[in-house]
Amino acid sequence: MNRKRNQQLKIFGSILILTIVLVGVVLFQSASPMRKAKSQAVKISKNVAGISDVQDFYWFTRDKTYFTVVGTDNKNVEKIVFLPQDGSEAVIMNQKDGITNDEAIKKVLDMKKTKRINKVSLGIYKEKPVWEVVADSIESGLDYYLIDFKSGELVNEINQV
């Protein structure tokens, strides 16, 4: 009886290990597009804006998809590089010319009641740089707020998606 139980435990252990390995492989593969996009965006940002130290990377999709890299150049100037996914020309700005992600979050929290902030990203909407703040609404669903990067004003709001 002991031998049968030991064999069952070995089979169960093998299945458990195999399941853990398969879940790990699936998770690793699912994150691959993000890693690849970030890697390419960082490389391009180094070439076009001299970014030497990357602080943040954002994947932003509204009218178009943008990969946005925030970092400092070799003169320690904080820069933002907006890279359109379609390969059109990059837009380069200084961070000091606009508000930070924390300031964008504060603007949303000051204007609206939300359960919690889920995500913040930086991109271009209607040819203007914006912060997208995604929050859980009080009622249900998600609320999306686009905050103008330069002025900090609300540009667009989509409620309870």
Rank of each mutant, 00 (worst) to 15 (best):
D86G: 13
S121I: 01
K107T: 00
K75D: 12
S137P: 03
S88R: 05
E89R: 07
K75E: 13
L142M: 05
Q55T: 11
I44Y: 04
S121N: 12
S52C: 09
K79T: 13
R35V: 02
L109W: 03
Y58P: 15
N94T: 02
A104P: 01
V91C: 02
V130Q: 12
Q95I: 00
M111F: 05
L122M: 09
S140F: 11
V108W: 05
N76Y: 13
E78T: 10
I138T: 13
T72E: 15
G123H: 06
G50N: 15
T68D: 05
V42P: 02
F82L: 03
S88K: 08
D136F: 01
G50M: 14
P129C: 05
R62H: 15
S32R: 04
M93S: 14
W59L: 09
K43N: 13
M34G: 01
N47V: 13
D86F: 08
R35T: 04
L142D: 07
K79S: 14
A31Y: 11
V69P: 08
K115Q: 10
V133W: 06
V70F: 09
F60L: 06
A135W: 00
D97A: 09
K119G: 03
D97C: 02
D53N: 09
I80M: 14
R35F: 13
V91K: 13
K126I: 00
N47F: 11
D110M: 08
Q55C: 01
D73N: 14
A104S: 01
N74L: 14
K96S: 07
A135Y: 01
T65R: 15
D56P: 00
M34Q: 06
Y58Q: 13
E89V: 04
S32F: 08
K119R: 13
V48D: 02
S39F: 12
T114G: 00
G141F: 08
Y66M: 12
W59F: 13
A31C: 01
G71Q: 08
T100R: 06
L142I: 10
M111G: 01
G71Y: 09
A41G: 07
Q85K: 15
P129F: 06
V120A: 13
T65F: 14
G141Y: 09
L109C: 01
G123T: 05
V133S: 08
S45H: 07
S32G: 04
T100A: 00
M34N: 04
I99G: 00
D56I: 13
V54D: 06
F57V: 02
Y58S: 15
D97V: 00
A135N: 03
M111H: 03
K126P: 00
I124A: 10
F60S: 05
S140Q: 10
V108N: 00
F82N: 01
V134D: 07
L122V: 06
